[in-house]
Structures are given as C-alpha cells and as structure tokens.
C-alpha cells in the first residue's frame, strides 16, 4: 500500500532518534516536535533537541484487541513512558516480559518495525521501549 509513506518519512527524526523541540524563550521541551511553543506562541523560538533514550514506565496496558496491522503481535504492551527529562510519550513495549512491567520500571529506547503495510508497502520503523 504505502499509503502512509509521506507521514512515515516526515516524522523520521522523531521516530528514529527521538528529536523533539525546545523553546529557547521559555526553555520548555516538547516531543514530538512542534512548530510553535504553545506557552510563548509568537515570542517563542523553537529549535531541535534530542530526547534522552532512557526513562521509566508511567502507565501501561496489555492490548488484546488490535487495529489492522498489529494483529500478529497480540498480545502486546503499550505504555506512557516518562523520559529522563520529564517528557512523556506513548510507545509500544518490545521484548518485555509481563513480570518486569510495572509503573516505575526503567526502560530504554529500541529501534523496531512499527508497521509493515501488508508486506508490500514501505516498512515504518520507529521507537519502542524495552524494560531493562
């Protein structure tokens, strides 16, 4: 299909290496990147900043009913991860056994396939997190 090709491509800095934004006016950090600082708006000055690749689980869930494209990974864990700089993001958890997944568990970013587009389209790669 490759239907989401431009979307996959456009977000590679975020998805591949956790590039976010920092507002030089107020110092706030955002992930994913934003075009304007919601706090400073016109006064803000947004630059790229790399997020830390380590953090901890803020909340998690084990998914048993998946949207198309994720069925073969069931059951899989998703989490809100709080990075070391306090930024939170949503991510799937990779290679993480059930007994190690809990709120507060340390995690680090890994690079994985996210979706395959039916084996014909572009493979969307990106971040997942793994319990250490």
């Amino acid at each position: 299909m490759g239907e989401n090709l431009p979307l996959v491509w456009r977000k590679m800095p975020e998805r591949y290496r956790l590039v976010g934004s920092k507002c030089l006016n107020c110092g706030r950090i955002y992930f994913p990147r934003r075009k304007i600082c919601p706090h400073c708006r016109r006064k803000g000055k947004i630059v790229d900043i790399k997020m830390p690749e380590k953090g901890k689980i803020y909340s998690f869930s084990e998914v048993h009913s998946a949207p198309p494209g994720f069925e073969n990974e069931l059951p899989y864990f998703v989490a809100i991860v709080e990075l070391q700089n306090g930024i939170k993001l949503f991510s799937m958890l990779a290679d993480s056994p059930r007994n190690k997944i809990r709120i507060g568990a340390p995690v680090k970013m890994v690079f994985r396939k996210i979706t395959e587009n039916d084996g014909k389209g572009i493979i969307a790669y990106g971040y997942k997190f793994k319990v250490l």
């Binding site: 290679d95 890994v110 493979i123 790669y125």
Partner: peptide, 16 residues
C-alpha cells in the same frame, strides 16, 4: 529475531 525485528533494525541497534 522478534516479530518486529529485521536485519535493518538489528543494523541500527549495532550502529547505535
């Protein structure tokens, strides 16, 4: 390799 890994994801992990 896990279901979400391929030789490219492995290459990226080694590179990192």
């Amino acid at each position: 390799a896990a279901i979400d890994e391929d030789s490219c994801t492995i290459a990226v992990e080694t590179a990192k």
